[in-house]
């Protein structure tokens, strides 16, 4: 048997079962955790809505107020996602990673920053003119040190997320991954995050592109 075939068979045998153990959607001024509505505040523009979510959950994190809207949205979705059942102590910081994606990159802040350059460029806005800063903000908050990546797609790409994250977990690069979609442009926004782990939990479903799409479509359809 050739080495390559042997490797492939071993990989297949060792392929781990992976689960979506939690999900969070923030869209249309609504916040869902595991498909249950946990907060709504209709009629507010995005910045005010994001602050209302922060205040409702009584988080104390002064740096939140300095973030741009993309980071605030991703940060809030991640807090809701991990709230309650997530057992961070099970993992080493290097075992928890983030794989996020969107369609507008950091354009929402890029435009605001560009406006400030006409008078006096804002350093505080400049530092948010990359989409992967949201991963940094979440990692700083929770001391996550695992592999991370941010991808820009035309739309939510469940197939890519399944393949990329499965590869990280099956190859033991990560034991746990927060992945999904965080997108903002003006008053249009959507965050859909998934917690991916090897251990099954009460409400978990298999980590497949079909299940990712099904959950994403529930509130974004």
């Amino acid at each position: 048997m050739s080495g390559a075939i042997e490797q492939r068979i071993i990989k297949k045998i060792l392929k781990t079962d992976i689960y979506i153990t939690a999900n969070c959607i923030i869209s249309n001024n609504l916040v869902y955790k595991n498909e249950a509505l946990v907060f709504e505040n209709k009629g507010l523009v995005l910045p005010d809505f994001l602050i209302s979510v922060y205040r409702y959950f009584k988080w104390q994190y002064p740096k939140f107020h300095k973030m741009d809207n993309l980071c605030k949205l991703g940060w809030l979705a991640n807090e809701v996602l991990l709230q309650g059942s997530f057992e961070k102590a099970k993992y080493k910081p290097e075992d928890i990673g983030l794989v996020l994606s969107n369609t507008n990159a950091s354009l929402d802040t890029d435009i605001k920053y560009y406006e400030t350059t006409k008078t006096m460029a804002s350093p505080a806005l400049f530092v948010y003119t990359l989409p992967n800063i949201v991963i940094g903000e979440i990692s700083i908050r929770h001391y996550f040190k695992g592999e991370n990546a941010f991808f820009v797609f035309a739309g939510f790409n469940a197939g890519f997320i399944e393949q990329y994250v499965s590869n990280l977990i099956n190859n033991n690069i990560l034991q746990c991954c927060i992945c999904g979609w965080v997108d903002v442009l003006n008053n249009d926004f959507n965050a859909t995050l998934f917690l991916i782990e090897k251990e099954k939990s009460a409400d978990s479903v298999n980590f497949t592109k079909e299940n990712l799409n099904k959950i994403y479509q529930l509130q974004n359809g």
């Binding site: 002064p62 300095k66 006096m120 804002s122 350093p123 505080a124 530092v127």
Partner: peptide, 17 residues
């Protein structure tokens, strides 16, 4: 107050503006 290096730049902007 726990300010950081970006805040320092913003304080410089404040003085100028």
């Amino acid at each position: 107050l726990g300010l950081d290096s970006i805040d320092a730049l913003e304080l410089i902007v404040l003085l100028q503006q």
